[in-house]
Amino acid sequence: MSGSFQAGQRVRVKRDFPELRGPCHIRTPHYLRGREGVVERPLGAYPNPEDLAFARPAAKVPLYHVRFDQPSLWNEGAAGDTVLVELYEHWLEGTA
């Protein structure tokens, strides 16, 4: 299963907080919501953990390794440092 995003593509993590709407299981760290990064590489497709956690049928969703500039996430740190995170496609949107 190939996803919508390619290596090198700029993406934004959705600024969404499903935990405010009810019980859920999310593998997208809070500190990345709304942040922009670059797809480092696709990692394949895996059953959606947000459904697996509740024993619901879980469709496979593409997973990506996405790289973020580390200092700009926190307004501190050393230039050039990065954070690399596995994120599922339904949490990502393209940037204009």
Partner: peptide
Amino acid sequence: KVVDSTAD
């Protein structure tokens, strides 16, 4: 490069 192990 910090690798936050979040998924599979």
